[in-house]
Simulated scan of single mutants.
Amino acid sequence: LMAPLGLKTADLPRQAPQAHVGEAVGVFCVWHAGPDELLLGQRDRHLDFCLWLGVRAGRLHLYTGVRPHHLGGWLYLALVWPFHWLIVRRSLARMAAHCSEAAC
């Protein structure tokens, strides 16, 4: 879905990667890695995107943030926004299935 629009995509790694600030995890750069949270991001010509994953009270929480750079970024955001929850839920389901297979 993302590649035809010029945004980066990646497959899930075979095993859970170690998160080190400044390194890449998939298409995202690790901006912060703490014991119970991870802040990932990607700066693209269309928009900047950040993803926060955190564990609180035994539950995984996810927050996303987007900053469009120009009209193209806003148009992309307008196209994706109605499907955002579906994309996030599918991504989390893929991560959960992958982690159960790889024993993350």
Rank of each mutant, 00 (worst) to 15 (best):
W74N: 07
W31Y: 05
P4D: 08
A96K: 07
Q15T: 14
H20L: 08
G58F: 14
A16Y: 05
G22M: 02
L92S: 01
R45I: 15
Y63W: 15
L47A: 02
A102H: 06
A93K: 09
E101K: 02
V66D: 14
M95T: 11
S91D: 05
P35H: 01
H69T: 06
P4E: 07
V55Q: 11
G41M: 05
A93F: 02
A33I: 02
Q42N: 11
P82Y: 08
R59H: 15
L77S: 11
R89H: 10
A10S: 15
H84I: 02
H70D: 09
Q18R: 03
M2F: 15
H70V: 00
D44L: 14
I87Y: 05
H46G: 04
R67E: 10
S91A: 13
F28M: 12
E101S: 06
D44Y: 07
L79M: 12
L51M: 14
C50R: 13
P35S: 07
G65I: 06
L86T: 08
L7W: 02
L5Q: 03
V21C: 03
H32G: 09
L39Q: 08
A33H: 09
W74Y: 12
A24W: 04
M95E: 09
C50D: 15
D48Y: 00
C99W: 15
V80N: 03
P82G: 10
R14L: 12
R89M: 05
L60S: 11
H69A: 06
L71D: 03
I87M: 10
S91Y: 11
A57K: 15
L79F: 09
A93V: 02
G6I: 01
W52G: 06
V88P: 02
C104V: 06
A16R: 14
H98M: 09
A10Q: 05
W85K: 03
A3C: 01
Y76E: 03
F49R: 08
L92I: 04
D48E: 08
L75Q: 12
C104E: 06
